[in-house]
């Protein structure tokens, strides 16, 4: 009947509109890299069309990949007692393709600091105490109490609030410590996004004096594990004897 056809056409139109809105919502939220929660999607995008949540999410995931070359990543973030499903975007195009073309130069300074913190944590065998981290940053002219650093502004807020909120870092309290002491690890976004092999290579270059990645034994093994997880072929391991 024509009503059925009209209803179907209407549904298709609503579907397309909601998919478009959800895609834009993802592209906009990447401005501050804050992950999207399931509840945000229902409240801000689907509103009274919650019944088609799954289909809209799938179609948005497809469009983000086909049209923009972005991967929609879903992670389960557990904090305190709750576990929440969160979503963010990763770039599917290789960095070689994107070099110089897709770059926001105003973000470079913060990227540098983020990379340094992630490198310190990774090289320190994936966890570091807050005090040790600040001691290392102090030597870079980045003291913990600096509220308006000319480049980074409020350092404590950036390291302990913003980066964790973006899921780049995870800041957890060490159990049964009084006064409370905290530890930093990579957050879900860093684990999904960062190329550990390139990171280790860059760290090794910074140390210089013809050091090789293999000379960091545990970290190098971690890179091999990471390569396998990514389904990359094993690098030809030098004879380890």
């Amino acid at each position: 009947s024509s009503q059925a056809r009209q209803a179907a056409a209407n549904d298709a139109q609503i579907m397309e509109r909601k998919v478009g809105e959800l895609v834009q919502y993802f592209l906009i939220m990447e401005q501050n890299k804050i992950p999207i929660k399931r509840g945000d999607i229902s409240r801000n995008v689907l509103k009274d069309y919650k019944s088609i949540f799954q289909e809209v999410l799938m179609k948005a995931k497809e469009s983000l990949s086909n049209i923009f070359g972005f991967e929609m990543v879903e992670v389960e973030h557990s904090s305190a007692k709750t576990k929440t499903k969160m979503y963010f975007l990763l770039n599917k195009l290789d960095s070689e393709l994107r070099e110089d073309l897709v770059e926001i130069s105003s973000e470079n300074p913060k990227n540098a600091l983020l990379w340094i913190v992630l490198a310190i944590i990774f090289m320190n065998e994936s966890v570091i105490s807050e005090t040790q981290l600040w001691q290392a940053l102090q030597k870079l002219g980045l003291p913990q109490d600096e509220k308006n650093h000319p480049v980074f502004g409020d350092l404590k807020r950036l390291i302990t609030v913003e980066f964790p909120r973006q899921l780049y870092l995870e800041c957890t309290r060490v159990p049964s410590t009084d006064p409370a002491s905290f530890e930093f690890r990579w957050g879900e976004r860093a684990t999904a996004e960062v190329d550990k092999e390139k990171l280790l290579h860059m760290v090794t270059e910074i140390y210089g004096n013809n050091m090789t990645p293999q000379s960091w034994r545990t970290q190098y093994r971690e890179v091999q594990l990471w390569r396998q997880e990514k389904g990359l072929a094993d690098e030809p391991m030098e004879q380890d004897g």
């Binding site: 070359g69 195009l93 393709l97 073309l101 897709v102 926001i104």
Partner: peptide, 15 residues
Amino acid sequence: MYTDAHRLVVQAFLA
């Protein structure tokens, strides 16, 4: 006809 080259250009316009 929609290739990685198109995705790269879209990404550059986003940036």
